[in-house]
Computed example of a mutant assay.
Amino acid sequence: MNEPALLGGVVAFDFDGTLTVRDSFTAFLRWRAGGLRYALGLARLAPAAVAYLFHRSRGRIKAAAVREFLKGVPRAQIEDEARRFAEESAVGLLRPDALRVWREWRAREAKLVIVSASPDLVVAPFARGLAAHALIATRLVYDAEDRIVGTFDGANCRGAEKVRRLHEVFGPDLRLKAAYGDTSGDREMLELAEEKGYRVFKERP
């Protein structure tokens, strides 16, 4: 990284539940599928939901949802749909107090990073709208025809994977100026920060 990028330090924000009031991936799937198709999809995911009670892997149940609702969809189509979803939903999803803190750090010339377990294609339009310096999120696998396969490129971006990905982007000696999160999946990222913001944002749109 060059020196100007480090001027205000690196500040990491979890997305779902931190910058937003609810899970963006679930909201996107519901928005895209419509009520009936979404309900039918949830019914077909019942076995995966039962299995989750035993393996407790959020990555596995998320991958099952990707296969159920998005498998075979061309990347260009899903990116366009994600953009339209963000345009329609941002006002109702983003927390006003989180946005104020985001802007405060930007005014201090911090390098602002969104680190999310949600698929990158869903979060990317929000990251662009917020002028984030970087987005680190769960990556999907695409086939030779650029269609969604239903598996992840690497691990679900949660817990220790958030720190690993941050180090991958910013280097092994990274120390965050601040980090904000709202679940146990953000614990390792918060430990990497000088200023730890756990469930500090409460406002709703």
Rank of each mutant, 00 (worst) to 15 (best):
F69N: 09
K71C: 14
K71F: 02
K71N: 14
K71R: 15
P74A: 12
P74G: 12
I78D: 11
E79V: 11
D80G: 13
E81I: 00
A86V: 04
E88S: 13
S89R: 11
S89C: 10
G92D: 10
G92N: 04
L94D: 03
R95V: 13
P96Q: 09
P96C: 03
P96K: 02
D97F: 07
A98E: 02
A98W: 09
A98Y: 12
L99H: 01
R100A: 06
V101L: 08
W102N: 02
E104Y: 06
E104T: 04
E104W: 05
W105P: 00
W105V: 00
R106K: 12
R106H: 06
R108E: 15
A110D: 05
L112K: 04
V113W: 02
S116L: 10
S116P: 13
S116V: 05
A117W: 00
S118P: 13
D120I: 05
V123N: 04
V123F: 04
A124F: 02
A124G: 00
A124S: 06
F126C: 03
F126W: 11
F126H: 07
A127N: 12
G129E: 08
G129M: 15
L130K: 00
A131F: 09
A131L: 04
H133Q: 11
H133Y: 06
H133G: 11
H133V: 01
A134D: 10
A134Q: 09
L135K: 09
L135N: 13
A137Q: 01
T138V: 11
T138L: 03
V141A: 15
Y142M: 02
Y142D: 10
A144M: 08
E145Y: 09
D146R: 11
D146A: 08
D146W: 01
R147A: 15
I148N: 02
I148E: 14
V149Q: 12
V149H: 03
V149E: 15
G150Q: 15
G150P: 13
G150H: 14
G150N: 15
F152I: 08
G154A: 05
